[in-house]
Design a binder for these strands. Structure first.
Lengths: 252, 252
DNA sequence: CTCACAAAACTGGTCAGACCAGTTGTGTCT
DNA sequence: AGACACAACTGGTCTGACCAGTTTTGTGAG
């Protein structure tokens, strides 16, 4: 196999395995080349491969960075092919929540089991940020909190799967925030869920963490199902990332 | 924007817009470089980006080719970027099995709950075929059985996720068949699992079906982990694109 | 004339060193 | 202390060479 591919795999493995955190800077091309004993061309080819796969971002004059899966940052990828299924099909939202219930439950379980000191620190940071912010504008932070837990599971396959559902998940999170947060009793419950989940993960109680995470997603799902049945109107989140504009502006 | 990226976008658009058909050969790097008036390095970087995105495949001495979109039959979802993580990294196999445990459990649960007459017929057919065949050559049928159950879950998102893991799953199924089936007591347990799972789904007992499906995957995972720890040698399944293409055709 | 086999002419893979182009830190001069 | 220019980073591109597989070609032996 080509050297450049071996290197790209090695780097990806390192990143997904938690060796490198999102937004973290990767050593410069010249450093990598020297350290791995290969030419800079090979390093560049490997990095382009990771770029194509959306694992890293490269900025002229600054360096290469682990792509954050958080929405605001990048997202030059085309809208998820599943996205179109979602538009006008609220059922898909519930299908997704159904799958999320399992996967987030497992992620919470594994995170409670495997989180390192660093992971716990990240999770704590994400949780604090979530707590300290206006609930109406925190869909992103909500997602970030769940994401931190997923990454602490140290299962690259799980991370990849949830990442590939990223766009849709963001929509469900936004939908739940937009629809549920305005109702006080709902918001309180959700906040309590988050706190319980946070504590269970930090306290390294896998079974409890899993149960709470699943109950949380289930609760959101049920609540939205009820709202749809009763009121009939879910607040629709416009499918419009528009971040590629933002992206090119930031980079040009 | 960097020249290499402009070129990769241009080529991708060309390919996706039908200018180039799958399996078709792309002009050589030197030709492209000359034709587009840039250096070969830029061309190579652009091609690596497309490679990372799964749009093309490159073969030493032969050239670059438009990737056949067959693997994963992904009308949805990007071509599994996970595939390569598996090669040479047995740990990823266990990561995948960890995720499978949850997803197949859920699929079994939902299948038992929602399967229609037609679904049950398909599942029965897949099960019979599995039963009547030489266990040493039935990795495909094994996979087909599990697949029939997944499809009966009637959750498009779940189907999509498992479908995008299809190639890797095929490998784990093959690995388990190759490693576990030769041991009689293992094979018997697996056969029993299949039968119990089949009966629970047909009998519309979701909780039981889920429990069995999860136990099944867990059992396979544990058994392989033990084998790796003891004997130290898992039979490695050669990663052979052509055969997996064959398989996905057979299953689609 | 045909077949076999080696050489040539492709393909991609890697290397070296140079230079351009953004970004950031530093130090000097006012 | 502040402003500004100059290093010293970073990635982006170019050149030309050579290595390593694959395919074509051409020539010699039968």
């Amino acid at each position: 196999m080509a050297i450049s591919q071996e290197i790209s795999y090695r780097l990806e493995r390192l990143i997904l395995d938690g060796g490198l955190a999102p937004e973290q800077k990767i050593p410069s091309e010249r450093q990598l080349a020297a350290r791995l004993g290969v030419s800079r061309a090979v390093i560049r080819e490997a990095l382009h491969e990771l770029q194509g796969r959306g694992v890293i971002e490269t900025r002229h004059g600054k360096g290469s960075f682990v792509a954050s899966m958080v929405p605001g940052a990048n997202e030059l990828g085309e809208p998820s092919p599943l996205m179109h299924l979602f538009e006008g099909h609220p059922r898909t939202l519930f299908d997704l929540l159904e799958v999320r219930e399992q996967l987030e439950g497992q992620a919470a379980f594994l995170a409670a089991q495997r989180a390192t000191q660093l992971d716990r620190h990240r999770i704590t940071k994400a949780f604090r940020a979530l707590e300290d912010t206006d609930p109406l504008t925190n869909a992103r932070l909500d997602h970030g909190f769940h994401l931190a837990i997923v990454e602490a599971s140290h299962n690259p396959v799980l991370v990849h799967v949830l990442n590939s559902l990223k766009n849709m998940m963001l929509l469900t999170v936004q939908a739940s925030v937009a629809n549920l947060n305005p109702r006080e009793e709902m918001r309180n419950k959700i906040v309590r869920h988050h706190r319980q989940l946070y504590e269970a993960v930090i306290a390294e109680k896998p079974a409890i963490a899993q149960k709470i995470a699943m109950a949380h997603v289930r609760f959101v799902s049920d609540a939205m199902r009820d709202m749809e049945k009763d009121g009939g109107t879910l607040i629709r989140i416009p499918v419009n990332p528009e971040s590629s504009v933002e992206h090119s502006r930031a980079l040009t």
